[in-house]
Design a protein around this nucleic acid. Structure first.
Lengths: 199, 199, 199, 199
DNA sequence: GATGAATGAGAATTCATTCAT
DNA sequence: AATGAATGAATTCTCATTCAT
């Protein structure tokens, strides 16, 4: 049972988190704490009442993001596993792309402005990738055994796939400066990847 | 025949450039001009005596880097063209990797922090990539015609290759925190890529 | 009812304003924000917490000054109008001089360094002069009609009067280096002006 | 007999002086020594080989200006004295205006940016005015004795005249922002002044 | 005598962080 | 718990001045 005060506190904290997420997604991680406070409708000091430092805030925002992404990846894995027989690599790639497309803006900031982030945060996502890697690898291993996919170490296939996606995100300004990149190139990316991995 | 003063001036300029290059490579492009001056053993003002502004310094350092990289890429293309008949994709990938391996640290910063850099510098990057893409595509087109490489649009092959490399660079801390990544994974990357693109 | 913090904030702001006013009056408008902060007993950053920029500070200080001067000029006009029949040029000049005498130091800086000030501030000056010109011209027009004052365009009479005053202010160091000029020469200035304009 | 070296030296000095004068006239006294050197076609250090400090340069430039102005005023006085009988106040004012019109640009900088100048220089012109004042007063005294000009202390008449002129110069941006003020208002100024001083 | 590279003391401004309220 | 005024270190950049060449 939470006291009214605790509820209030958590609501404030959430307001800060939501605002920070939104501002970071749209303006990048160099946004000032003062701006976040203002947009969140709280005082500047309140930010530091909830987060010891800017680093803490970043860790929280980015950590939360990674967690929610991980959860989506997990669900994705589950659903493809539950429909195991019919689970296809194609369907998996679609699901993966969909998730990234849904969070492109923030994800893009994360990979393009990584150097602005505190060290603790910079590599958080590493853990995260393993969830998706796991399911991906299961699926691919089966296809390799079935003789459909080339006999390439599955982790390399995964890295190739992620490399392609990140390359497009990272060069968004080149590929698609004014609208989301992933949605635009999803088909081409998937098609190329499948062409490459199949015998 | 240079006067002593000209030599000294160029030496100072070079000290600044070298120091800036080193600091940018190790700490990233947000290093302050004051720090560069201090490490170079010159006064803060001297930096601005040689470069009108921080942007100018960045343009110079990054521009020089891009130019030297472009020159190396060009030579690489030439040598593979001169040995045209025997020119192999494999050799090309080796050459490409070698160049990047030689400049890994700075190249890593460049691709990691590109979005934080002034616009003028960002364009250089794009120009540069097209040089290598050109040679790469020529080679691959031939191999496709020869029926060795899969019929995938060559630009996608290029993007896949660069994606892989950048992915490993970008995740250096995960793949190889204490030593250069590319040297370590060059073989695996090349092998994977060739396995994928060949029929 | 103001909270303690509001009072303190305003007190700090006032400290900055007062100090800036004093320093500008004594040393001119090229005084640095650091100096103002130090003399005001606040940190340098505090100046920018209260004023977005140096320009804003100048606008505030000078604007306030102009406004208070304008108010005094306005009152002066009113009182001479209310006593319309008996309103004399002589009284008007006395009132005008009195106001300037009260603010001689800052007014001197304003007319001496106007060209160095940001544009926004420069316009204030012009507006201000027109207020006093208006009342002055009304009075003089009547006297001209009455045949007391020479038939010279009233704007030229105004310019002559202001020219005389500004000339003495501008040459304070020559006329009266150690004490206010206007107080010292008010009588002579007024007497000369009246002698000149009367037939 | 000057050695070649001395001649060279003086020529360099003169180049600096001429350039400084021109730049100060057109851009104001905040022009940097580096710019003056560059425009003069000499090295930055050369400026300081000829003038111990920026202040020295300013003193020289402004001093020279004052001297040449004084010389012109002196000649003006002589010519009006030589033609004594026919010398008129009107002619004198014309001559005075003409000299100022010829040097309006620099003179304007001198009176509008005085606060940027070192103290030693700020009041130089005081001495200068006495030359013209002398002739002016002689002429006016005679006219007063002749009953043409009002019996007002001649120094006040002089100050009034100078006040008018300075007022127009000082407010050039208001009276005539894009072309010289004095030439434009010379007639009006003179006419007003004469109207005022005559009985 | 002339050079011009190097200097270093400022200049305005930003911003995460603190703490009395 | 929330406030927000105050802090001060850090940033880029300017410029008169010096001195080895």
């Amino acid at each position: 049972m939470k006291s009214k005060r605790q509820i209030q506190k958590e609501s404030t904290r959430q307001k800060i988190i939501d605002t920070a997420y939104r501002i970071y997604a749209t303006e990048g991680f160099s946004a000032s704490t003062a701006k976040i406070a203002k947009e969140a409708g709280v005082s500047h000091g309140t930010v530091f009442a909830h987060f010891q430092s800017l680093n803490d805030l970043l860790e929280c925002i980015i950590g939360d993001f990674q967690l929610s992404l991980a959860a989506e990846f997990h669900d994705m894995g589950e659903s493809s596993a539950s429909a195991s027989a019919s689970a296809s690599v194609s369907g998996f790639l679609d699901a993966h792309l969909k998730i990234l497309i849904d969070h492109e803006e923030f994800y893009l900031r994360l990979i393009t402005e990584r150097s602005l982030l505190p060290e603790e945060v910079q590599y958080m996502y590493a853990d995260n990738q393993s969830t998706i890697a796991h399911h991906f690898n299961l699926l691919l291993s089966r296809e390799i055994k079935n003789g459909i996919v080339k006999e390439v170490p599955v982790h390399m296939l995964f890295n190739t796939w992620l490399g392609m996606i990140h390359y497009y995100l990272w060069n968004k300004d080149f590929f698609s400066p004014d609208e989301p990149v992933l949605a635009r190139y999803a088909g081409e990316l998937k098609h190329t990847f499948i062409s490459l991995i199949t015998k």
